[in-house]
Design a protein around this nucleic acid. Structure first.
Lengths: 333, 333
DNA sequence: CTCCTTAATGTAATCGTTTTCATATTGCGT
DNA sequence: ACGCAATATGAAAACGATTACATTAAGGAG
């Protein structure tokens, strides 16, 4: 079943059918109606491969991420896909747990001739993989890398605002001993979060103790381990801010298992605002990164790059803000 | 950049290049090596749309699900994608929150000419949408529907085993008053879980009280609400089994917020074994549905249907089993 | 040395659309 | 009634791969 069948059945040429499908104005209304009826009757659906081959547009966008199981990514995908759906575009998924597999993911994107790629992999160097994209003029959007080039945009978060709000919030509760469980040292997105914390502390005239600036792995287990380390020391923080919500979840689990009450004994602040923050108890106070705006910013970046292939990509900054829930409370004295 | 460029550069015909790419044996080893070098040098990547158009194979599989944010689905996708990757296939995602959008999702799958679709939507009637798939001989796999037809397979779970283990496990702890928080009434997958529970109770010589067989929505909030209802009654169950882990999480949250300890005051058993069961505290005892085997079964079903288009699809049943963690303990007397 | 088989490569048709260009039809002014 | 826009449609050439068929080269048997 193809456009020819439809044309024959409708008694018109394939060109006319094609025009009807694309909504071209050059077709007589009656013809349009008639052809539409035949299309409906035959349940005709045009072949994407033929269309793509001819037009050069695949209507596919790729997303490369380390783990779809991580709620942060899953929630992004949901928003992104919903935006694309409105534009009748599809999303192609490539999971890349380890950076070594990046080449494979990029190849899959290239063969599928995606019209853009969102790269949600943080711990990976720019390299020949990216050249392969730009070489083919495929726009890419990275997250939180702050680097921009032709056909390469970046959307980053401003952690300062949210982090300042978080520290102020804790300070208001009387907390002075605040620890930070960070992410992977050396990763831009990780270091910037830590810096934002230090900055927030300074703004509140609090000292960020060196031994309370921990590194981690963004995972529940690493949050758990870091929390145990913090609580095992002779002098313990009364509040902890974490690099992401999963880490906070781990920290909270550790606190519970060590017999500390949250927020009675320790207050905990996360970062991301994944939906899980509301399913655990106490609900997590966290610094919200707007997921929907992130997806929207990606779409904008793609539009910009497709329009101005020679110009550098966009650099968008999204605000973060504190969402207060139940995991923070007055400092124990 | 296309196959012609490569052919010209290598001084051979396009046919030879094509043969080299597909690994055909009819090419002299030296020629193969030479062409390979040129392909590498030019970073040539063949156009998927052209290949698909010509061969009729898109190397794409579709997955239609209600919400990628639900860990159960996300974990399935991860396994499924990883299996497909080995076969150099891609996954196309279509999120369908409400059944009304099913038609749209199916259309997207059809235009993309997927070679198979996994349908993870439970609350939806078979209807013209499915005819559109079978009409085009596109194999589909449904989950837990127990219906099979040509080009339609189903992989279901046997809840009986796991449920029996769960009830036995609770009974051994002295529980006699066990409630069940179910899913959406009338859904096959939901009703079968409830029946398995009742059956398990009977096998253990326990009575499943009518007022302790609740319906729900598979969500955290519905688990929360159901738990509150259970605990507000004058006579309370000492253990609760839920239709899925998200419901169990909600139940656990409600218990905590009402001041009940888990498992001190109530034991809770989930179903699914999503990764979250290990991040919350206490870690959730749950009936495990093997995610990886589910993905593998889907792949097998596709293979079968592609091989035997006329025969009815496969019906695979996967076992469930109890995984004991910390949310269950001795019954309070 | 010729004939025939086998191996290696090339030629060209094809997949299902879109789109340019050509053609047919219509309406309108004079 | 004629010519000329404007409008509606059709014919055919792409897009980039695959593959059936044709061709050439080489090797072996008689």
């Amino acid at each position: 079943m193809n456009i020819k069948t439809v044309a024959a059945r409708a008694g018109v040429s394939v060109a006319t059918v094609s025009r009807v499908m694309s909504g071209s104005a050059l077709v007589k209304p009656e013809t349009t109606a008639h052809v539409r009826r035949v299309i409906e009757e035959l349940q005709f659906i045009p072949s994407a491969s033929a269309t793509t081959l001819k037009t050069g547009h695949s209507r596919n966008y790729g997303v490369i991420l380390p783990d779809i199981t991580n709620p942060y990514f899953a929630e992004f995908i949901r928003e992104f896909e919903s935006l694309l759906e409105d534009q009748r575009q599809d999303v192609l998924l490539a999971t890349t747990e380890r950076p070594e597999r990046m080449e494979n993911s990029i190849r899959r994107m290239l063969t599928s001739q995606v019209e853009g790629v969102v790269i949600l992999i943080a711990d990976e160097e720019f390299g020949p993989n990216y050249d392969r994209l730009t070489l083919r003029k495929i726009p890419a959007v990275t997250i939180d890398r702050l680097t921009v080039a032709p056909m390469m945009s970046d959307v980053a978060f401003d952690f300062d605002t949210g982090m300042l709000q978080a520290v102020e919030h804790l300070a208001k509760f009387g907390h002075r001993e605040i620890a930070f469980i960070g992410g992977i040292k050396g990763l831009a997105t990780s270091d910037r979060r830590k810096q934002a914390f230090v900055k927030g502390m300074r703004a509140c005239k609090l000292r960020a103790k060196k031994q309370w600036l921990l590194d981690g792995l963004y995972t529940v287990d690493s949050g758990d381990a870091a929390m145990r380390a913090l609580m095992a020391a002779e002098v313990r923080p009364t509040a902890v801010i974490t690099v992401n919500d999963m880490t906070a979840l781990g920290a909270m689990r550790a606190a519970h298992e060590l017999g500390f009450s949250v927020p009675g004994d320790v207050s905990i602040v996360g970062l991301d605002d994944i939906e899980l923050t509301r399913v655990i108890s106490p609900a997590l106070t966290t610094i919200q990164l707007p997921r929907r705006e992130l997806a929207r910013a990606c779409v904008e970046c793609f539009a910009h790059m497709l329009k101005h292939p020679k110009k550098p990509g966009l650099q968008r900054i999204l605000e973060s803000r504190l969402v207060v829930r139940r995991s923070t409370g007055p400092a124990k004295r």
